[in-house]
């Protein structure tokens, strides 16, 4: 009997421990996506619920399909949606790169500090993550607006003559996403750098490798799992981001999360919003599945 199986010789208890979380996630996480798929084939109507039926039951096991692909046809013929998807992927990718650029040196620095100072530095990375996301995005409105702090400083220093239009621009969206997702990049990076065996670095240095060569040939390849995990944690949720483009991007930045929100809350077209969501899900599932495979492979390697 292996040591894992020993913990539960009791069959009923074991079923309960597996079954409760399983049931919860199937009912409240998987099932909703099936319903989302179903409603994406229906049509919007006035009434409760605000969508038409997709199947008509004819008694017994027979039914008639009433749904159609009209929402998807509409998505692929209107440029607004296609460019919103493309723009979201672009913004998410650039923000991920920016997070990596700022986060990597930071994670590296923290992993090289010892003792209490390291705990403190790590704490300072986690702390913003615990304070409200909404409020941290809001803070940038005060900094970026035309009479805000950044424009004030630039004017005072004489670098510019009139305030720059920083707020409600694509720049503000990149800044906002990079800012709010940075901790998600740093923590997995730190975890992979911290585990690294310091003697490998010393060995490379003793053999005469320059610091840059040590970094490129030893540090970077060993921290690769952290780079991938961090990038996934930033890139995937950033594609569907709503709060940042809504508060900082104004009308100038088209992102699919914002489009979904307005289809649902402003146009009250639930079926079209569902179709927007399904396409978004398909875009996200590709990197997710790849990541899952990658993780299982690296777990298998151990």
């Amino acid at each position: 009997m292996n040591r894992n199986a020993r913990f539960t010789r009791n069959g009923a208890g074991r079923r309960l421990v597996v079954g409760v979380p399983y049931l919860w996630m199937v009912v409240f996480f998987l099932l909703p996506f099936l319903i989302l798929l179903r409603i994406s084939f229906s049509e919007s109507r006035i009434g409760l619920p605000p969508y038409t039926e997709v199947f008509e039951w004819l008694g017994g096991l027979s039914f008639r399909v009433l749904g159609s692909f009209s929402n998807y046809q509409f998505l692929f013929t209107d440029d607004l949606y296609l460019s919103a998807y493309a723009n979201s992927v672009k913004i998410a990718a650039i923000s991920t790169a920016l997070c990596l650029l700022i986060g990597y040196p930071m994670a590296l620095g923290i992993s090289r500090v010892r003792g209490q100072a390291r705990t403190l530095l790590l704490m300072l990375v986690i702390l913003p993550f615990w304070t409200s996301f909404l409020i941290r995005v809001y803070a940038w409105i005060g900094l970026l607006k035309s009479e805000g702090l950044i424009n004030g400083l630039l004017l005072w220093a004489g670098i510019i003559d009139s305030p720059l239009a920083l707020l409600y621009s694509p720049f503000a969206v990149y800044l906002g996403i990079t800012y709010s997702y940075l901790p998600f990049m740093i923590l997995p990076l730190y975890a992979s750098l911290e585990r690294m065996d310091g003697s490998l670095l010393e060995a490379a240095a003793d053999l005469g490798a320059r610091p840059m060569a040590v970094f490129l040939n030893v540090t970077l390849p060993l921290s690769w799992p952290g780079v991938i995990a961090g990038s996934m944690l930033v890139f995937i949720p950033a594609i569907g981001e709503f709060v940042v483009p809504e508060l900082l991007g104004g009308t100038s930045t088209l992102m699919i999360g914002k489009v979904l929100w307005s289809e649902f809350f402003l146009n009250r077209d639930w079926p079209l919003a569902s179709a927007v969501a399904i396409i978004m899900l398909i875009i996200l599932v590709l990197p997710l599945v790849w990541w899952q495979r990658h993780q299982q492979q690296s777990e298998g390697d151990k």
């Binding site: 995937i236 949720p237 569907g240 999360g257 929100w261 569902s274 978004m280 997710l288």
Partner: peptide, 10 residues
């Protein structure tokens, strides 16, 4: 990693 708009709507 699931975007909140997807979780919310579904």
């Amino acid at each position: 990693v699931m975007p909140e708009v997807l979780l919310g709507l579904s």
